[in-house]
């Protein structure tokens, strides 16, 4: 959790540095659309209120990163504690980085490829619940699928373990094709959307690398595996 908190804070700061310009641009387009439709007037009062809540949102990003990081760090801690013996490497940082790479791929990158992140201005509010269910479902399908094939991986002889990897590939490809598409059209400029998505992937990847390094370093230093020294006496 502590590792996740720090990694999440790094994630929030990375977002401020590289994703925020795209968010500002997208919200600027949203505002222009509001003015054009007559829903809002481009007044000083609007600008004051806008600046006020944008400060709240930007500042909140670091706090939200810490909260999200703590929660994902909790999940990462569970999975690392249960799987660390089978992870390759003789150092806990290496083991944690291998695991963070696997989790980045299965519960972030694959769902992202199916349902990529979108900036403000993209997305119909009427479909937000459906999109949230689809995204979470695909994360769960990919994550639990990976756990299931990991169980198979453990039970197979080393020479046959490739079967489990291929099995996961077939399973997730089928899920990818069968899951419904995002129902919303992307109406924002493609340069903006692509730039936002690229920087979003970089920032999330920074999180996963950070959480792997930090948790691995903590585990290496404090070694929570309990060691009980037992003395026995025998007579010969």
């Amino acid at each position: 959790m502590v590792a996740g908190f720090f990694a999440g804070t790094i994630h929030g700061l990375a977002n401020l540095a590289i994703v925020e310009p795209y968010l500002d641009e997208a919200i600027g387009i949203e505002n222009q659309n509001l003015f054009a439709s007559g829903e809002e007037d481009d007044t000083v009062q609007f600008q004051v209120e806008y600046e006020s809540y944008r400060i709240w949102q930007k500042g909140g990003q670091v706090l939200a990163g810490a909260i999200l990081g703590t929660s994902i760090g909790a999940l990462f801690g569970i999975v690392f504690a249960l799987s660390r013996k089978i992870l390759p490497g003789n150092h806990h940082v290496k083991k944690a980085l291998v695991l963070s790479g696997i989790m980045w791929f299965t519960i972030y990158l694959i769902p992202f490829l199916k349902y990529p992140a979108n900036p403000p201005t993209v997305g119909d509010p009427d479909t937000v619940v459906l999109r949230a269910i689809l995204y979470l479902s695909f994360i769960a399908i990919s994550g639990f699928g990976a756990v299931g094939f990991y169980q198979l991986f453990k039970r197979l002889e080393k020479s046959k373990r490739i079967v489990a990897l291929i099995g996961y590939g077939v399973f997730i490809s089928a899920a990818f094709l069968l899951m419904p598409e995002n129902p919303d059209e992307v109406t924002a400029p493609l340069d903006l959307v692509n730039g936002f998505r690229a920087t979003s992937v970089i920032a999330v990847s920074i999180f996963w690398i950070s959480v792997g390094i930090i948790l691995g370093a903590f585990w290496q230093k404090y070694n929570p595996d309990k060691q009980i020294q037992t003395n026995t006496t025998s007579k010969f």
């Binding site: 968010l23 949102q57 909140g60 992140a117 937000v128 979003s200």
Partner: peptide
């Protein structure tokens, strides 16, 4: 929602 708005978008969650 407003506090987590930017992170929600940047982390890939549907926001609105």
């Amino acid at each position: 929602h407003e506090l987590t708005h930017d992170m929600r978008h940047a982390a890939g969650f549907p926001c609105h």
